[in-house]
Amino acid sequence: MIDEKCRNCANYSPHIHFPQVGRCLVFDTGVSESDSCSKFRRISIDDLLSTLGREGSVYCATCGTSLISEEDLKTHSRSHCLTTRVVIDEAIAEESKAAD
């Protein structure tokens, strides 16, 4: 049985580097993957498939990688934390070096 924690919620957007913490899209606040609340809505395979179809990718927070095929999505969805949104850190613009 999948627990009703943020990590399984459709409204959870994990941080790109530290996916155990992230942002709640409903309350627009910082949350941890193990938090929970009454607004919990389990992310469904349909949510993910629909995002994949529309935007071309979903994100696997467990692996830290973008998934671009339905096949991958289904494989990862068995035991990994998949999300439709990722928190891109604002500091990246300053942290990254010119790299090409």
Binding site: S13, V21, G30, V31, V87, D89, A91
Partner: peptide, 13 residues
């Protein structure tokens, strides 16, 4: 996050 309510968008800081 609990104490300062920091935004997860600036975690790298």
């Amino acid at each position: 996050m609990k104490i300062y309510g920091i935004d997860p968008r600036s975690l790298s800081r």
